[in-house]
Simulated scan of single mutants.
Amino acid sequence: MTAIHDAIDLDETRMLDPTQHPELYDNVRTRRISAFLVDAVIMVVLMTISFVVITFLGLFTLGLGWLLFGLIWPVVPILYTMFTLGSSESATPGMRAMGIEMRTFDGGRMYSLLALVHAVLFWFSVTVLTPFVLLVSLFSPRKRLLHDIVLGTTVIRRDDGRI
């Protein structure tokens, strides 16, 4: 365990208060942006694989499989986020690489349904509000984005891999 997590017993506090534990939020915004870039590369690879599979499926179904091309963009990123963020790690591969994880407001781990709703709200807010979606984090003590505030989630550091 790192010093960050030695001082915190989530079973006792259950609150990730930035005034009590500011070290949990150090550099979270930058790490989150970097994590998104890593995840974006992974999602592009997954979408490329999906494109190839659908192309061959379309050939074998006389073109009917090509109707699935429209689903690649919305489905792959949402499923990727749902299954990785909603896992027991509470983090996507990019988030794990950057040493951060997402928690519920009371310190609990993410679960699949919450990760699904989080992914849908994230992609909706990015589509509608980009680049303003990041501005909300400048005024939030937990450096949360709008969809984090709506869902009651927060991103914290986890440099040791666990809390």
Rank of each mutant, 00 (worst) to 15 (best):
T48N: 12
P131Q: 12
T48L: 15
L57Q: 06
I54P: 03
R96I: 06
L68C: 06
H21E: 05
R96D: 02
M1D: 00
V41E: 00
R96Q: 13
V28M: 07
M15K: 15
I54M: 09
G99K: 00
T48W: 11
L16F: 02
G58Q: 11
G58K: 12
F83S: 03
R144M: 07
V76T: 05
T2K: 10
L24K: 03
R162E: 09
V52E: 08
P18C: 09
F139N: 09
L135H: 02
N27E: 05
H21L: 04
R32W: 02
L16K: 05
F51T: 14
T81I: 01
F122E: 05
A119V: 06
F139A: 14
P77C: 09
G86W: 06
R96G: 06
M82V: 02
I8S: 04
I33R: 09
R162Q: 13
V128Q: 07
H21M: 10
A91C: 08
G94Y: 02
L16E: 03
P74W: 05
P131A: 13
T19N: 13
S90I: 03
H21F: 15
R142T: 15
L129T: 08
R158P: 02
L138Q: 09
W66T: 05
H21Q: 11
L138I: 12
L135V: 15
G99E: 02
R31W: 04
L145Y: 08
T48A: 14
L64Q: 09
